[in-house]
């Protein structure tokens, strides 16, 4: 659901220490749009960048289950409840494939989980905002999944094979999520006054955080250049943000909702919308873990992990008992 690198300024990985001949071959393959596979040689910095990006993406899917999961028990009718359950389940599935994709780079799921729970690893800033009304479920599908698609469609051609292939399936599902979110908003916007108010309020609250999902502006994005060269990324943050605004504004207008940006204006010359400045101070605060419900999100993940420890342990011990039993059976059968 989120793929922008959130590592701090100045921490950009470099490939300085690698064997120049190996590096040259690698870079030529990437430049020729070949996929890099787990068994292939790759620069250490490429591997690290990918682990960070894919695991951040996986964590975002898992933490992202919480704001929407918050409304499963309160969904307004049976159809919406079933759709939301299926959607949140998809997000969990995405987390699972992405952890698997990251594991091909030599990191375990437990290590990644540990990094998330200790606060060392980041996840998308968007999930540190609360879901207050049912319209937020519509806004998340429409805007958040819409922004995610914008980020992820190019990643189907990312240079690392397992990540690219995971993205093909994820994009298909995200596209359904985006449509169901927009359909919720469309329904609310055509509903009672109270429902319209709910829809507009959700757009007001989710618009700017959605624009932040593309990450810092290009001149402040330390890893963009290297990632573009290695085709881990295929477009810059600002290019994707502009594309999102251009596609989303007419969708808002079509259902009679107002994008909460007084500076928003069609620019005939550029063939694109001009829009106001994102509050980057807020973005960096949320990245630092100061988002409105950041503590609740981390607490929920930590609680699930700690409360589930005895279950995972029981499953492990039981599997061992079975394995021993099977070995004994095999010996007895000889």
């Amino acid at each position: 659901m989120y793929t922008t690198d959130l590592s701090g300024k100045g921490k950009a990985e470099t490939a300085a220490a690698e064997d120049p001949a190996m590096l040259a071959t690698f870079e030529a393959r990437v430049a020729a749009d070949e996929f890099i596979e787990p068994k292939d040689w790759m620069p250490e910095a490429y591997r690290k960048t990918l682990i960070r990006q894919i695991s951040q993406h996986a964590h975002s899917e898992i933490v992202g289950m919480l704001p929407e999961g918050n409304w499963i028990t309160r969904a307004p009718n049976l159809r919406r409840k079933a759709i939301l359950l299926a959607k949140v389940q998809d997000e969990g599935g995405h987390g699972l494939y992405l952890y698997c994709a990251a594991e091909t780079l030599g990191v375990s799921r437990d290590e990644m989980t540990e990094a998330l729970l200790s606060g060392k690893a980041k996840y998308s800033t968007i999930f540190n905002y609360p879901t207050l009304t049912w319209a937020d479920i519509g806004a998340i599908g429409w805007l958040v999944d819409g922004a995610a698609i914008m980020n992820q469609v190019p990643l189907q051609r990312t240079s690392y094979g397992p990540y690219a292939r995971a993205m093909v399936r994820i994009c298909k599902e995200e596209s359904f999520h985006q449509r169901q979110g927009y359909e919720i908003m469309m329904h609310l916007a055509a509903g009672t006054e109270a429902q319209k108010r709910m829809a507009q309020d959700a757009l007001n609250r989710w618009w700017w955080p959605s624009l932040m999902m593309f990450g810092p502006p290009d001149d402040k994005s330390p890893n963009t250049e290297q990632s573009l060269r290695w085709r881990i990324k295929r477009d810059t943050n600002d290019e994707l943000r502009q594309k999102f605004v251009d596609i989303t504004v007419p969708q808002a207008e079509a259902i009679g909702l107002t994008v909460p940006d007084p500076a928003l204006k069609w620019n005939e010359e550029r063939g694109a919308y001009d829009f106001g400045d994102v509050d980057w101070e807020e973005f960096y605060a949320v990245v630092r873990g100061e988002g409105a419900v950041a503590k609740e999100r981390m607490q929920a993940r930590q609680k699930a992990w700690e409360d589930g420890a005895w279950v995972r342990e029981a499953a492990r011990v039981h599997a061992e008992k079975k394995a021993v039993g099977n070995r004994q059976l095999a010996v007895g059968a000889r």
Binding site: R79, K81, A82, L85, V88, Q89, G92, A304, G308, R312
Partner: peptide
Amino acid sequence: LGEWCGHAPAIEVDLSLSNVALDLIGQAT
């Protein structure tokens, strides 16, 4: 079962409980 979503002991368990919930909501419908 929907109450478990996002809070289960492992992702696989979360998915399986949501799956069961989804079947049950379908039956109820």
